[in-house]
Amino acid sequence: MAFLTVNQLTHAYFSTQSVTTALENISLQVEEGEFVSFLGPSGCGKTTLLSLIAGLMPPTIGTVKIQNENVQKAHNQIGYMFQQDYLFPWRTIEENIFIGLKIQHKLDKMSKTFALDLLEQLNLEHTRTKYPHELSGGMRQRIALVRTLATQPVLLLLDEPFSALDYQTKLKLENLVFNTLKEHQKTALLVTHDIGEAIAMSDRVIVFSANPGKIKSIHTIPSELQKMEPFEVRNHEDYKHIFQTIWEELNELEVEN
């Protein structure tokens, strides 16, 4: 049995004037420890899919199962990273990284030590008593990563977490997140519209078409590239070919629409 199973998922948004189908008949499976990317044009329902997997809202039709259990409401064991850090400006960094533990009533000496160790691993221990506005965008996103990992989630959902950063910071953070997740053996889903990022970070890339969101194709990245750090992958020869294939596919999608 797969770690995560999405079974014939369809989701629609309602307003009094209209019905918008965001996702149609999505089925996919993700194994434990796998890193899967969702790639597609805007409006293909990628974020909707993450929200459904996180249990933030119930799907219109279909089911999501994590470790063979139906996801009904927000799952304690999911970590979610957003496009921006969304650190609470009125809390210090330390209070920010403890927030998940506090919400889940798991704030004790052990969990605190774990969170602070993570902060140290990312070379951020000097920021403990600072406030978010005193730090740079890259640092804040790294702290958001610590906040997400502090609750020890089994599944990480990354919703374009690098899109608001400058290019250099983005490349560095890709490596950092990749290594951190591999080290802690996390299963992760990444939503992105950056083809390079998807190839560099994932084991599999799932391409979506838009209006309504459907799975168009699935690309398995060669195992050699899977093991490499994202930055190395970007310099690898095969990278270009895969990039080219997906690029053409996405272009076709645009023409179809």
């Binding site: 933030l56 927000a74 979610y80 506090k102 919400i103 889940q104 609750t151």
Partner: peptide, 20 residues
Amino acid sequence: NYIKVIETFGGDKKQVFQEV
């Protein structure tokens, strides 16, 4: 989005009010 942060950790409405 701040509310969503609390919700992804499994926070309920009372916690959303208190924390955000």
